[in-house]
Computed example of a mutant assay.
Amino acid sequence: MGTHRTTVATAWMMLVVVLGVLSAPCEGKVQRPDYDDTGTPEFLHPAWMASIPDSRSLSEVTLPGTHNTMAFYGGALTECQSWPLGLQLQAGVRFLDVRLRHVAGNLTVHHGVVYQRAHFGHVLEDVARFLLERPTETVLMRLKEEFSETGDIYAAVVGYVRRHARWDLLWHSRRTPTMGQARGKLVVLQDFSGPDLGMRYGSLDIADDWKVPTLLHVPQKWQSVHKHLAAAAEGNKARVFLTFASGAGIFAYPNAVAQRINARLYKYLSDMAGVSKRLGIVTMDFPAAPLLKMIIDFN
């Protein structure tokens, strides 16, 4: 079984490398109002949560997020973001999607087979630094095991928190906090077994139709996004809604899907500008600063 798994992983890695080379962009980086694959946001919005009332439940806050937050390497098939984590937070991102490979107690950041040149400690240090500088803010972080199958990352996560941040940085409850309770805290959305480190990821109302086989399937992907955003606006205000606007497939790389879905999302939100509406967490690949600001303004 181990040999077979190694062979499959090697073959997949070779495919990723080949497709990454074949898909290397022929033109420069893009910075549009809806899509940005440059290294720097157009502008920053680091303390936008300061104006949200302390009494408001986090489930009633509309906030932007990034899918596969740390996926910067591996070619067009696996790269989902271009801004470093610190800049994502400064630009207004408040939901992070972090995938960890667990080997002998070590937690390295992966997107599938591709190592993203970071470990969980790097993520925690960036988040802790940001929250120390911006105590009015909170960060939600989905944690998921990826490219390992131990099913037991709890102790490793706890060890990293104690070494690279501090224990009281976390919101230690399954309950959804109010904004006042969450300020200065990292709210773990726990997508793994073990005692409570934070809220359970599975308790959220989630739309993550990530499979987009080809670019011809983008309209179906957008329908899923549109439907769930409408549901978030009308749904149970005590429940956190999470909509993934990201998607990919062998013939539809994350950047190509994001250019098309982000444009639709930007127009959809522009048409509702000026309205106070709960959209929940809106998670994207390669978002642009104006799109993040537009999402934030629904608060």
Rank of each mutant, 00 (worst) to 15 (best):
H4R: 15
H4W: 14
T6D: 12
T7W: 13
A11R: 08
M13G: 13
M13D: 07
L15M: 04
V17P: 03
A24D: 12
D34G: 04
Y35F: 15
D37W: 03
G39N: 12
G39E: 14
P41M: 11
H45P: 00
S59I: 03
N68E: 15
M70W: 12
Y73I: 01
L77Q: 12
E79W: 00
C80H: 10
L85N: 11
A91C: 02
A91H: 10
A91G: 05
G92A: 09
G105I: 05
G105L: 10
V109F: 12
V114K: 07
V114A: 07
R117D: 03
F120P: 08
F120G: 11
G121R: 00
A128P: 06
L131W: 13
L132K: 14
R134C: 05
R134E: 11
M141H: 12
E149I: 14
E149Q: 07
Y154C: 02
V157T: 07
G159N: 04
Y160E: 10
Y160I: 03
R162I: 02
H164L: 04
A165F: 00
W167T: 14
L170M: 08
H172F: 01
Q181R: 06
A182H: 08
A182T: 05
R183T: 00
G184C: 05
L186P: 00
Q190A: 06
G194N: 08
D196E: 13
Y201I: 00
L204N: 12
D205Q: 14
A207Y: 02
K211L: 06
K211R: 09
K211F: 07
V212M: 09
V212G: 13
V212Y: 13
V212C: 06
T214R: 02
V218L: 07
P219D: 09
Q220R: 14
W222N: 08
W222K: 05
Q223W: 08
H228S: 05
L229P: 13
A230F: 03
A231T: 02
K237T: 13
A238W: 05
R239G: 05
T243I: 04
T243Y: 08
T243M: 01
G249T: 05
F251W: 12
A252I: 09
A252K: 10
Y253S: 15
R260C: 02
I261Y: 03
I261N: 00
R264M: 06
K267Y: 04
L269G: 13
M272S: 05
A273M: 01
V275K: 12
S276M: 14
K277W: 03
R278S: 00
I281G: 06
I281K: 11
P287F: 00
A288K: 01
K293H: 10
D297K: 07
D297V: 07
